[in-house]
Design a protein around this nucleic acid. Structure first.
Lengths: 175, 175
DNA sequence: GTTAGCATGTAAACAGTTACATGATTGT
DNA sequence: ACAATCATGTAACTGTTTACATGCTAAC
């Protein structure tokens, strides 16, 4: 997976601007794929427009910058669907929080509690976001994917609440 | 998180070779942090040895290559613990599988079934690996972290089994 | 008055991947 | 025979991040 494929994937579901791609990959419906910065998205879109995988039109708005609205072309869609038949890389869950928890006995006890509290709030906010997404699903595939994320989120939250004492009641080393 | 911090984190828990760091970050106890290739790990260790954050000794083995066993130094440990007090980046779950499922109605029905079956086997293998890790935990922090991973794995597996019909019973587009 | 959101884009710098090189042993 | 495991390392390449540039609106 790279920024190119991410853009094609989002464009496969409808017209968007570069700015919207960023938002959708960050928070929205497409948050399970990769993160991408503007410095990666805009050049990718420009290159793909040259290669005729996407096209765009300008939309002038009053008091706001011009929007470049991108659409996927037939050859773009073809390349995208073809990429779906390539061997998927294994799923990965990565967490700096878990590294901190693994080393929690070398940290300050109150800092650990603060980190856990913050993580709980983060998970609750993510849950609200995901529940919002679930409400306006169109297809059963969308229901499956947003449901998957919500399921993982709830599992993490439940585990944290039930097992945080394992970390907070341990022996802390003095520094 | 970068390769440097990953190496320091693993060395914080004991002496290892570059080769072992790769394995531990791939499959082992440290699989929740980042993936790193040999081409990233070896130069990182060499650089950190120059900076006196780590040291190493050679171990000659018969019929096998020489092993360079790395240890963390006091200043290495100091830098590492300090990095644990920096704001953690949000956790992320990334999955090419979910992208495929999101687009499953444009794929071949049998291919979708095959992908789900493969994912189930992958999750079961991961579960066995994690259960192996859980058995030889030393601290409650380790118990917490391996338990977290196992909990997420089980939640994913359960969801997949209960909801796969959502994908397999949908209307597929003809190509 | 400052921050955040909307919106696009460039260019230098960097981190990390991929491919290659080497070589013995063990398993299929 | 061939692939896999153990084990270290280099170098070219590439993809991406970070920082900068621009500018208007709305909220706090």
């Amino acid at each position: 997976m790279n920024v190119r494929t991410l853009c094609l994937a989002i464009l496969h579901f409808g017209e968007v601007t570069g700015y919207e791609i960023k938002k959708l990959a960050e928070d929205g419906k497409f948050c399970y794929f990769i993160e991408a910065s503007f410095g990666a998205i805009y050049p990718a879109l420009t290159r793909m427009a040259n290669e005729k995988l996407v096209t765009w039109r300008s939309e002038v708005q009053e008091g706001k910058p011009v929007r470049k609205i991108y659409s996927i072309t037939d050859s773009g869609r073809q390349e995208f669907v073809q990429s779906l038949y390539e061997e998927p890389k294994p799923d990965r869950f990565k967490s700096e929080f878990l590294l901190m928890m693994l080393c929690s006995n070398t940290l300050d006890r109150h800092y650990v509690t603060k980190l856990i509290d913050k993580k709980i709030i983060e998970l609750e906010n993510e849950r609200k976001m995901l529940e919002g997404l679930c409400d306006n699903n169109k297809s059963s595939a969308e229901t499956f994917v947003t449901g998957y994320g919500l399921n993982m989120n709830k599992a993490a939250l439940k585990y944290l609440l039930e097992h945080r004492s394992l970390l907070e009641d341990q022996q802390f080393s003095v520094s």
